[in-house]
Amino acid sequence: MSKLKNRCWTLVQHSAYTARQDPTFKNAVESASLSTHQELGQVVDAGALLFTSYADAEDAADEISKDALDRALYPEQVSADTPTGPLTFAESLTIGGRPLFLPPAPPNS
């Protein structure tokens, strides 16, 4: 497997859930660095998010995880009417042992 010359990142299920099964982080994501062309190809083929900047990956992870973490950590600040649904992960495709996050498909125009 050839190594990537330029680093890339994607989003995966949060390690606090994958390692410790902490339910607070079940619907949370974190960034994961891609190191090989094979990983890059798998992420692209799966339709997952791809970032060329660590900061952009972290910002996206924060935004995607916000509802789940706010609901768990700050329940008094979250309206019960705020819709939240489970995130989708590719259980069979992992980066560093964490399932790859698959964003929802864009609505048909």
Rank of each mutant, 00 (worst) to 15 (best):
K3L: 15
L4A: 02
C8A: 12
S15N: 12
Y17E: 05
P23Y: 04
F25G: 01
K26S: 08
N27D: 15
A28R: 03
V29S: 00
E30I: 01
E39V: 03
G41R: 14
Q42D: 15
V43F: 08
V44W: 03
V44T: 11
L49T: 04
L50S: 03
F51D: 05
T52P: 04
A55M: 08
A55I: 10
A55Q: 14
D56A: 12
A57V: 07
E58H: 11
A61T: 04
D62Y: 12
E63A: 12
E63M: 11
I64F: 04
I64L: 02
D67S: 14
D67M: 10
D67W: 01
A68S: 10
A68E: 07
L69W: 06
L69M: 07
D70W: 12
A72W: 02
L73N: 13
V78S: 01
V78P: 06
S79L: 08
A80Y: 05
P83Y: 05
T84C: 13
G85T: 09
P86H: 10
P86L: 00
L87M: 04
E91G: 01
L93Y: 01
L93S: 07
L93K: 10
R98V: 01
P99Y: 01
P99K: 10
L100H: 04
L102V: 02
P106V: 11
N108S: 13
N108A: 12
